[in-house]
Computed example of a mutant assay.
Amino acid sequence: MIKARVTVTLKNGVLDPQGKAIEGALGTLGFSGVGEVRQGKVFDLEIDSTDKAAAETDLRAMCEKLLANTVIENYAISIG
Rank of each mutant, 00 (worst) to 15 (best):
G35P: 03
E64N: 14
G13N: 12
V71Q: 11
N74G: 13
T28Q: 10
F43Y: 15
M1G: 12
S78V: 12
E46K: 15
V71H: 02
D16K: 02
E36F: 05
D51L: 02
I79A: 04
G80F: 06
D51E: 11
L26E: 06
D58H: 10
F31Y: 15
D51G: 00
L29H: 01
D58P: 00
L66W: 02
E46H: 10
G27V: 00
L10V: 12
G19T: 10
M1Q: 04
N69Q: 02
M1A: 14
E23H: 14
L26N: 01
A21G: 11
G19C: 07
K3L: 09
G13H: 07
T9I: 14
K20R: 14
I79W: 02
K20L: 10
G30A: 05
V8Q: 06
S49Q: 04
I2Y: 10
S32P: 01
D51C: 07
N74V: 06
T57F: 00
D58S: 15
I72D: 05
K41C: 02
V34H: 06
L59N: 01
G40L: 07
A61P: 00
K20D: 07
A21I: 13
G35D: 10
G13P: 06
G33K: 12
E73D: 09
A4M: 08
T70H: 01
A55F: 01
T70V: 14
A25L: 03
A25C: 03
G40K: 12
D44S: 09
I72N: 07
M62Q: 14
A55C: 07
L10E: 11
K65H: 13
F43N: 12
G35T: 05
N12W: 13
E23R: 05
A55L: 04
K11I: 09
V14Y: 08
S49D: 15
D58G: 13
A54R: 15
L67C: 11
E64F: 04
A4K: 08
